[in-house]
Computed example of a mutant assay.
Amino acid sequence: MSHIQLDRDRCEGHGLCEDAAPEIYRLDDDCELELLVDEVSPELRSKAEAGARVCPVAALRVVS
């Protein structure tokens, strides 16, 4: 399975990842990103990658 690497120092809380994959990414009330899954199943990998791709500051990476 894959997992998501989040660079919290880079994340600016734009929320585009949440728009692309709300079952994986969520911004809390303080605009801090929460990862809703520890491991990305094969079924969700394309969604996770889509959320990472739209991040304007490249704070997300999906890795095997």
Rank of each mutant, 00 (worst) to 15 (best):
M1W: 01
M1N: 04
M1G: 14
S2W: 10
H3E: 09
H3P: 00
I4Q: 10
I4H: 10
I4P: 11
I4V: 14
Q5P: 00
L6R: 05
L6D: 06
D7V: 02
R8L: 10
R8A: 15
D9S: 11
D9F: 05
R10Q: 08
C11E: 05
C11F: 02
C11W: 08
C11V: 01
E12N: 04
E12R: 14
H14L: 03
G15P: 06
L16P: 00
L16D: 07
L16M: 05
C17P: 02
C17Q: 01
E18I: 03
E18M: 09
E18Y: 09
E18N: 06
E18A: 08
D19T: 03
A20P: 03
A21V: 02
P22W: 04
Y25T: 01
R26Q: 15
L27E: 06
D30E: 15
D30I: 00
D30Q: 14
D30N: 11
D30F: 11
C31A: 13
C31Q: 15
C31H: 12
C31F: 13
E32G: 00
E34L: 13
E34H: 14
L35I: 11
L35S: 15
L35W: 14
L36Y: 12
L36I: 02
L36T: 07
V37D: 10
V37M: 08
D38S: 15
D38W: 09
D38M: 08
D38V: 07
E39N: 11
E39H: 14
S41K: 07
S41A: 13
P42F: 01
E43K: 14
L44G: 08
L44W: 07
L44K: 15
S46D: 14
A48R: 11
E49N: 10
A50S: 08
G51T: 02
R53T: 07
P56N: 00
P56H: 06
V57R: 07
A59Q: 04
A59D: 03
L60T: 04
L60S: 01
R61C: 06
R61G: 02
R61K: 15
V62S: 06
V62G: 10
